[in-house]
Amino acid sequence: MNDDRTPEPEDTGADRGRTPEERTEPRNGTGAAQRPGPGRQPLPEEKTPGSGGERPADGPAAADAPSGAPTPPAPAPGAGADAPAPEGPRDEEGMTGRQRMRAALWPPRVSRAQLIAALLLCVLGLGLAIQVRSTSDASVLRGARQEDLVRILDEIGDQTQRLQDEQQRLEEQRTELENSSDQAEEARRQTEQKEQQLGVLAGTVAAEGPGLSITVSAPQGAVDAYKLLDAIQELRAAGAEAIQINDVRVVAGTFFTQDGDRVRIDGQRVEQPFRIRAIGDPQDLEPALNIPGGVVQSLEKEQATVAVTREEKIVVDALRAADRPDYARSSPQ
């Protein structure tokens, strides 16, 4: 079995009488320990890291640093080009130079004088541009040949003639439109007037004008529907244009019926006294009622009282709905 232990050095005669420290000192070729001679300096001890001593820094910085000066702290890991640059000095308000410049430029502060100056400069620039354009056009015409100038004049003359013809045509169209509009306005006015006239005859619109106001008072049943119908016929024959009895409008299709001792007009009961309002020429209507054997004398024979009064303004305001015919239609003739 092999023994791995290191053999102890043999105790020679040279090591006898030496201490253990002297035994570990290196020897020279003769086996004696090397000791510093009288002219030699002892070598400094080499300190290894972790032995408690400080190792001198390597490089030129270590060579330039004075002995005994404190070594500057090394930069922290990761600090380098990515670290933000320090801001500049701040003023009394706590603003940097960049912030002061931004506050001075925005928002812009424009005075009225600056606005007026800018407007004047714009107008001046526009005038200069127009002047340059006109000058360039004039220079083009100034340098044109005689044949080109004649051609340009002919084109301008033709264009002027076309514009004059167009103006004349438009004026003729305007005249035609004015005439047609006048004719249309006249036709519309006549249509409205005709509608009013037909409405008066049909009883769909109110009417007013000179005429007669007639009041008939009689004992109950003394004046029947037939005597009232005779009075209406006399007024129509004399030229009455609108007639109203009490609150009933009398038109071409009005009918009278007798209901006992009561009178009905278009199905509506009419009570005494009978008030008849007729619009027409009073000089024609009144004689037609007062002729011998006429309406007034016939009613007076029935012990009725008849009062006829001429008036400058008679209002017939009773209306009736327009009846739409079932078979009759308007004809173009």
Rank of each mutant, 00 (worst) to 15 (best):
S217F: 02
R55N: 10
M1I: 10
Q99N: 05
A187S: 11
F255T: 12
P75Q: 13
R5E: 02
T160H: 10
A206R: 12
A118D: 10
G39N: 09
A129N: 02
L229V: 04
G127V: 15
I214A: 10
G267L: 03
I156N: 07
R188M: 06
I245G: 05
G125L: 15
P9T: 08
I232L: 01
S180Y: 10
A103M: 13
R145K: 05
D148P: 03
Q168F: 04
L177W: 09
A76Q: 08
S139V: 10
E178C: 01
D64V: 15
I156Y: 11
G127C: 13
A237N: 11
A117H: 00
V223D: 02
I152M: 04
G209H: 05
T71R: 13
I291Q: 07
V308E: 15
V308N: 14
R27N: 08
Q193L: 12
Q197H: 09
Q114I: 05
A231F: 07
A222D: 02
P86C: 07
Q131T: 09
M95Y: 11
E312H: 01
E25L: 15
D323G: 03
T12E: 05
A318S: 14
A57R: 05
V205S: 09
G88N: 08
S139M: 08
V205R: 12
G53W: 10
Q190Y: 01
P7Q: 05
E166Y: 03
P282F: 06
R133A: 15
Q159W: 09
L119G: 07
L105Q: 12
A328Y: 06
G68W: 10
A129I: 01
S111D: 07
R264V: 01
L177R: 13
A328I: 13
E10G: 09
R100D: 08
S51P: 00
E312L: 01
G97A: 15
P273E: 09
L141I: 08
E25N: 06
P56T: 12
V140N: 13
